[in-house]
Design a protein around this nucleic acid. Sequence first.
RNA 1: GGAGAGGUGGGUGAGUGGCUGAAACCAACGGUUUGCUAAACCGUCGUACUGGGUAAACCGGUACCGAGGGUUCGAAUCCCUCCCUCUCCGCCA
Length: 425
Amino acid sequence: MLDIKFIRDNPEVVKQGIKNKNGKDRVDELLVLDKQRRNLITQTEELKAKKNSVSQEVAKLKKQGEDASSIISEMKIISDETKEIDNELNAIEEKLNEILYHFPNLPDESVPVGKSSEENVVVRQWAPEEFSLENEEKVLDHIELGKKLNILDFERGTKISGSGFPLYIGKGATLERALINFMLDTHIKEHGYTEVLPPFLVNRASLIGTGQLPKMEEDMYNIEKDGLYPIPTAEVPITNMHRNEILEEDSLPINYVGYSACFRREAGSYGKESKGFLRVHQFNKVELVKFVKPENSYDELENIVSDAEAILKLLKIPYRILLLCSGDLSFAASKCYDIETWSPAENKWLEASSCSNFGEFQGRRASIRFRNYKTKKLNFVHTLNGSGLATSRLMVSLLENYQTPEGKIIVPKVLQKYTGFEIID
RNA sequence: GGAGAGGUGGGUGAGUGGCUGAAACCAACGGUUUGCUAAACCGUCGUACUGGGUAAACCGGUACCGAGGGUUCGAAUCCCUCCCUCUCCGCCA
């Protein structure tokens, strides 16, 4: 959420930022409400101040055993008037908040302005030495490989739950588990993150805190009976660990890594990239989350990207890193890098990670603050997160890149101690 | 699912209608003392919004004792609804 004071003082900056993000500009509407709100606050507070002082009088008079009935009846009128103004005020604040909670975060200055993913910028690209993007012989795609080797069963997944719910079998399941453990261990041991295994169902306040709600209501699974939502990413529970907390300045940065299953309705996206693993309702992800001091957040974004890409280097899977343009940035992000892995069968890059800096956007929504030792003031922390990484698209690249001409899969060297086997055939 | 207890400031914990934004203690911070550490003593010590002020310091006002309503001139305190936590019983991975 943006600071209303900032919007008030910099309406043009905010308008431009929203425009660059392809958002709906409701700044003027908001400022009118803000003005009304402050007028009403002044009115009601004056009345309340009077009420408070007169109440003291009443107490005094009663103590002395004198009659206070005339001022009491006068106060009754003021009290009613106050209630009326308060009702009006509440209505305005509700409207104002509704708008404010739908305001996207603004892009950072370093983010290229652009309309869509077409204008994202490739920052760098990496591949193991023996690799070439030009593959001459025909390769099997991950669905064919999964079927042939009996490690993935999308049909049965559909029978059990519906389309988009993958089912791993045998060595496929083991490989998935190995991948998760390998990524967790690497981030914990090599990159210094603290492991978290969070709840997979969260309440509404948590989703508002990280920014999924109220805007993305349609994209969320919702267990109405209990008021709980299956998480679309571990970002939600992990970031909300510190909701409504005041952190010690010297405890920052806080770095968490957590595995979770992720649940997404993907409403309206049927038919688009929907085969196999490319777009699913449930997938596994290892998520990196950071709570940092404001002045460090953009450096920390670079760190989170390099922690995520380290996994791909170790796995020896070709990838590239994109700096998203303003129009492709998600609602809560001020800057974001996507990491895409290469799929030789699809002959294209697949998004396997998204690393974002949210600035104080989530900190403000979720009220996550720290005491600034120097100024003694409370400041919002900056939050970041990045997939490190999501296994579904990664699994596509892994299977396809590691297939042999006979259609077997060689297990990447670093995963072998986790799988206990070297080949899937 | 059944029965009960409870939610007060960073923490513990007083407080049953006006003198309570809230005692006391602990923690924290500043200072005095000290060869160092410790202790002792003194002082400071909530947040948000809002008005003024130089976007600082600071000053004024309002709100906040789980959340939301209600009663009242006046609510942490009385009433209603909801949420959460804990204990015991039942069921269960």
